[in-house]
Design a protein around this nucleic acid. Structure first.
Length: 795
DNA sequence: TGTTGCACTTAGCACCGTAGAG
DNA sequence: CTCTACGGTGCTAAGTGCAACA
């Protein structure tokens, strides 16, 4: 299994990308925006551009094949892919660290104007070319917003308080947990309360036995609870620190290390050049990493093999090193089959054995999987250190196959509070460092050897610290909603600017807004796969078509984005954008940057001026969430059955996933499972017709006899028909849903881009149990929203 | 003004347990 | 009761963005 999925269309072939040349941002310095010569496309359209942008769209469209028509001559890099998604336009955005502002509940403000589609103004295109001069050039307003000054980001935390403030310390009792309704503030409090009560109970339970003995008296417990709660609740209220600190108290047990290497049994041999050879333990361990991946396709890739051999040799003894020089002569097959047998054996284990393992895991989880942060027991996200192995980058990664070394205690930095119990390193070892930095949220970190980046152990998404951040993120996106029109107007103005850098910035922002592209930070060449985002797009990634089919000014995007997922899309843009793009392309080579006067920091600096806390990412969040909200409004019909409503929800979700280009490899078993489902549907259909017949005959029996028994039969049959109808419909819904979902991944947008309050409100409004749209993990992550949002919540 | 380091979010995939079909 | 498809989960790579530094 394995193997194939990676070749999903997205992959590029290793092409050369190498050309280092880029970076000549400066060289093109001279472009005067004025002369727009170029019009490569012939006809200087005299027509008014009517942009029909978004025309098609509809959550339907999605995938199609790429035709691959003209390729660039440039680097041979060609992607083989075949499939791609063509999105419709629709913007989306994302956000992220936002600082919260008021979370005022309602805020409806704009009705819905923005579904992301910009008005596509009807500006008549008037003149040809960049008619810039026509419009008066305004210095752009930039500064305008008042908001900017009022809130400095430092106050981020204080600001959130607005919401909290009304939460008065409230009455102790947990009573709040019950009686419902209360406004959101109270709801939120309830959430906190349950949290801390939890913590309290846990603490009591963990007290030394002599102490907890005293506490067995329930009355005493209750009293303690009350008085402690009044103290602590105040503290909880203060928890929004204003000095940038993230916590006051942090205690944990440190990470769990990967199990030590267990040498192969002697009977399992490694062969070199056909002859058995005993390897030293370190060399053998690395060999097993390779053996385990043998049937994965990247063990056949040259770079992978080359990197592997190089790193492997570093682990060898001098003798081994001198002997083993050619990977092709290495025989890993015995090792490989040994591992296969082992995993088979694991599957064959008895229930009891499996149960035992499960219990052991649970024990470790209980011991190491939680920490105490500011009086709350919180789940840790990844408390296990990554085991050693071979690095598998995504896409065409230059470092694939390198050895990811084993992490030892002396590589780990522990972070916790001074007054906590410091975690103990395994016997005989020491931590690299123990620090007490409450300006960060991580509990432990280490430096990874492939890219030299730092890895962290942090809390689970259900934790307060992640939840609040998430909430802030959506609040920032909601603030953007309030000023997005102004921002859009501004960047449209900027398309006419006299300065190249302003124009580039404006066009890039337009893409980010309309197409939900990622920002596109610069990456170090040769260190990672060659992928791009908006600001790092190169000339070779877009093609301009003055006219295509019925549409004018079409831009075709074809590039690899994050995780080497291909982004392919053809969209009509406004004439002015088109002309600007032509201008940006002048005198450039395919591997030159499209936006040579722009990078993410310039762009974000600009965005920051437009709205406090605004960055490129916020657009993705904003557009994703607003799209969901609109689609839900549009697709959900109150009279539908529950499965139909859920299908609508999934469709709305899907529209967002398409917007954000969240793809997945079609499940390997897709065709088959689809077929199975179809068989079921057919069966169900015939069942239904049988049931109907039976009902009919029961009815006529009843008519004839009018006895009680036959009446009952009629009822029974009627129910049966109804039940089967429902089942059938459910199956059909399922089939549709699955088909539409073939290569779209809904999870990412659901988890990261869609304000959960929209979903919660929807589920309340239509009486769909929240469990139908969020599984347990998701409900935990979104607990804040589930408590907070009512059915009238508006993003 | 560009570069680097750091912290934190976002991403797809592999694996595994289990519910439901047979 | 066994098999298998599916969803959930864990894992960890790959982004973003800020700030310190050069």
């Amino acid at each position: 299994m394995s193997g194939d999925r990676e070749h999903r269309e997205s992959q590029v072939n290793c092409g050369s990308k190498g050309n280092d040349s880029h970076k000549h941002k400066d060289k093109h310095r001279e472009h005067k925006h004025k002369d727009h010569k170029k019009d490569r496309g012939h006809e200087r359209s005299k027509h008014n551009s009517e942009h029909k942008e978004h025309s098609e769209k509809k959550h339907k469209d999605k995938l199609k094949h790429s035709d691959g028509s003209d390729k660039h001559k440039d680097k041979e890099k060609r992607r083989e892919d075949k499939v791609k998604l063509s999105h419709t336009d629709k913007p989306k955005k994302e956000k992220e660290n936002g600082y919260v502002r008021h979370s005022s509940p309602g805020i409806k403000s704009e009705p819905e104007e923005d579904n992301g589609f910009h008005p596509v103004s009807k500006h008549k295109a008037s003149k040809r070319e960049l008619d810039d001069e026509e419009f008066d050039y305004k210095p752009k307003k930039v500064k305008t917003e008042h908001d900017k000054k009022e809130k400095k980001r430092k106050h981020e935390y204080e600001e959130e308080d607005e919401e909290e403030e009304d939460i008065k310390p409230k009455k102790t009792k947990d009573r709040s947990a019950k009686d419902g309704k209360k406004n959101k503030k109270e709801e939120e409090e309830k959430w906190k309360w349950s949290c801390w009560i939890n913590w309290f109970m846990n603490t009591i339970a963990s007290l030394p036995s002599d102490f907890s003995g005293i506490l067995t008296n329930r009355r005493l417990q209750a009293r303690l609870l009350v008085s402690a709660s009044s103290i602590l609740s105040r503290r909880w209220e203060e928890e929004r620190y204003t000095d940038g600190s993230k916590w006051r108290f942090l205690e944990h047990k440190g990470p769990v290390f990967a199990p030590p290497y267990e040498p192969m049994p002697d009977k399992v041999k490694f062969f070199y050049d056909g002859k058995p050879m005993k390897l030293s333990a370190p060399a053998e361990e690395v060999a097993t990493f390779f053996a385990k991946m043998l049937d994965h396709e990247y063990t056949t890739k040259d770079i992978f093999r080359k990197n592997f051999l190089k790193d492997w040799r570093k682990e060898m003894t001098p003798e081994e090193k001198s002997k083993i020089t050619d990977l092709n002569k290495c025989g890993f097959s015995e090792m490989s089959s040994y591992f296969k047998a082992q995993s088979e054996a694991r599957k064959q284990m008895t229930k009891e054995e499996k149960q035992k393992i499960k219990e052991e895991n649970e024990r470790i989880l209980q011991e190491y999987g939680f920490c105490i942060m500011d009086k709350h027991k919180e789940r840790i996200g990844n408390f296990r250190i990554e085991p050693p192995g071979l690095f598998r980058g995504r896409g065409d990664h230059p470092k694939m196959g390198m050895l990811k070394r084993r992490i030892r205690p002396q590589d780990i930095i522990i972070n916790c509070s001074k007054d906590s119990k410091i975690p103990k390193p395994p016997t005989g070892t020491k931590w690299k460092e123990v620090r007490h930095d409450n300006k960060v949220t991580w509990l432990a970190s280490w430096t990874e050897n492939i890219q030299g980046s730092i890895k962290y152990i942090m809390l689970n998404p259900s934790s307060r610290i992640k939840g609040e951040k998430d909430w802030q993120k959506y609040e920032t996106a909601r603030r953007l909603k309030k000023c997005v029109d102004r921002i859009r107007n501004q960047y449209r103005e900027d398309w006419k600017s006299k300065e190249m850098r302003i124009r580039q910035r404006a066009v890039a922002l337009y893409f980010i807004d309309k197409l939900a592209l990622r920002a596109g930070n610069e990456k170090e060449e040769g260190e990672t796969a060659d992928t791009v985002g908006c600001c790092s797009l190169r000339v070779e990634h877009i093609k301009l078509y003055p006219k295509m089919d019925e549409q004018e000014f079409v831009v075709e995007f074809d590039f690899l984005g994050k995780d080497s997922i291909r982004y392919y899309n053809k969209i009509p843009v406004e004439k002015r954008v088109f002309k600007n793009l032509q201008l940006f392309l002048e005198n450039k080579q395919p591997e030159d940057d499209l936006f040579d006067r722009l990078n993410t920091s310039i762009l974000n600096k600009h965005l920051q001026e437009l709205m406090d806390g605004l960055t490129a990412k916020v657009f993705r969040t904003y557009n994703a969430s607003i799209t969901l909200q609109q689609q839900l409004k549009q697709l959900t019909c109150g009279d539908d059955s529950d499965p139909a409503k859920i299908l609508s929800y999934n469709r709305a979700n899907r529209a967002v996933a398409i917007l954000c280009n969240h793809q997945r490899a079609p499940p390997k078993t897709f065709e088959k499972s689809m077929q199975n489902l179809q068989t079921k549907i057919d069966d169900k259909q015939s069942q239904l017709s049988t049931a109907r017949k039976q009902l009919k005959s029961a009815k006529s029996d009843y008519k004839a006899s009018h006895d009680e028994k036959s009446q009952k039969t009629v009822e029974l049959k009627r129910k049966a028909v109804q039940r089967i109808e429902e089942q059938l419909m459910k199956l059909q819904m399922q089939a549709t849903d699955r088909e539409e979902n073939k290569q779209i991944a809904l999870g990412t947008s659901k988890l990261n881009y869609l304000d959960p309050r929209i979903s919660v409100a929807w589920s309340k409004k239509y009486g769909i149990p929240i469990e139908k749209i969020y599984n347990k993990t998701q409900r935990e992550k979104f607990a804040w929203a589930i408590d907070m949002a009512e059915k009238d919540f508006e993003f």
